[in-house]
Design a protein around this nucleic acid. Structure first.
Lengths: 196, 196
DNA sequence: TTAGATGATATATAAATACACATCATCTAT
DNA sequence: ATAGATGATGTGTATTTATATATCATCTAA
């Protein structure tokens, strides 16, 4: 799935969550089956424009075609229109990161010989310096679950390594995204991400 | 077809025309059959998101989901990003309006007893005061054809009356559109236009 | 006049969406 | 433990898109 489509899908999902709607609630509002909402959010269907417009509408969003060169400016406006939402989300993420850090402290007491856990600690400390958005919340929650469920086994360690990798990807994605508004090498430059 | 979809479709068409592309040329660029482009532009199909994104991409556009309250600001940016295109289009329209005015002068010499032609002259003078965009160019061209083809007959007069009506609608649409960016009763407020 | 371009329309077909409905796995609250 | 909520997944079906291809009507240039 091309980046542009993933962005749209993730924006819809984030908007739904930000409004505190379940898929079933959105289903009723938009007149789309819940199963279809699930597929849409998971990129399992290539939805029609009419469906997109209707779902966006009930989420107080509108589909706009923007000249590529204006995308950074537009995204800046879009972002600045969500201060209250962003604060609430940021707080959730901050809380979740703290929980993850605490889980890691406990895990370090039990398994100080596992270097990946120390690495995870460093990673989390670095992530705490960023302003993380909602799509990343799931990643952090998953990480917390993994650390809390960790057992000193081959499978457990594989999960830890996977989590470490995911958090590194998250960090890299954030670093890559941060200058988005200021430069023309934006993450939203489709020349990079959409080769056909 | 809901207003939101029509806006998107018309934006695609305008972008194609602004780039001087035929449907066949766009077809090759986007990998979509020309027949399908025609249907899309005429609202005969409800295209899939992937198709929309691909066609928009080759037209240097990007699909963005904008919070409804930010739409006026975003549209302002979108419009301000097209100075060169708008000048070119405006010039075409200005030229066409001049032609129409000249056609009307000639028609007045021949048919000064027909009040509709005088009305058309007034209407065209009023339209010349506005900054008219591309979608309206066709209307003006049609008007010019009608006036040039005018014959002093019942059928000819009916065509003139129709043209007068169309230009009045055009004028009204423009007047209705002008304050779009400044007020919340924007033409893009879906609460008004999309009842389901 | 002919040739070519343009956009609209038609036919046939494969693939996919949208929809209704059901069910499952998981989580949370009581 | 049970009930309810949530999101994911599956089945069956009607409808539509997307595609390939062709053709038509109209316009324009030579």
């Amino acid at each position: 799935m091309a980046y542009a489509i993933e962005y749209i899908v993730q924006t819809l999902k984030a908007a739904r969550q930000n409004k505190g709607l379940s898929q079933r609630a959105l289903s009723k509002l938009a007149g789309v089956p819940q199963s279809h909402i699930s597929k849409i959010e998971n990129g399992a269907v290539d939805l029609r424009l009419s469906s997109l417009v209707e779902i966006a509408r009930v989420l107080d969003l509108e589909v706009i075609l923007v000249p590529r060169k204006s995308v950074p400016a537009v995204q800046s406006i879009v972002r600045s229109s969500r201060p209250a939402e962003r604060m609430a989300v940021a707080q959730s993420v901050v809380t979740e990161l703290k929980r993850l850090q605490q889980s890691l402290v406990i895990a370090m007491h039990k398994h100080s010989e596992i270097k990946e856990i120390a690495q995870l600690q460093r990673q989390v400390r670095e992530l705490q310096r960023f302003n993380i958005a909602l799509p990343e919340l799931d990643t952090v929650r998953d990480a917390n679950r993994t650390v809390q469920a960790f057992k000193d086994s081959t499978k457990g360690l594989a999960e830890i390594r996977k989590t470490l990798s995911e958090l590194q990807n998250l960090r890299n994605a954030i670093v890559h995204t941060l200058p988005a508004v200021e430069t023309v090498t934006s993450a939203y430059t489709l020349d990079e991400g959409d080769h056909g």
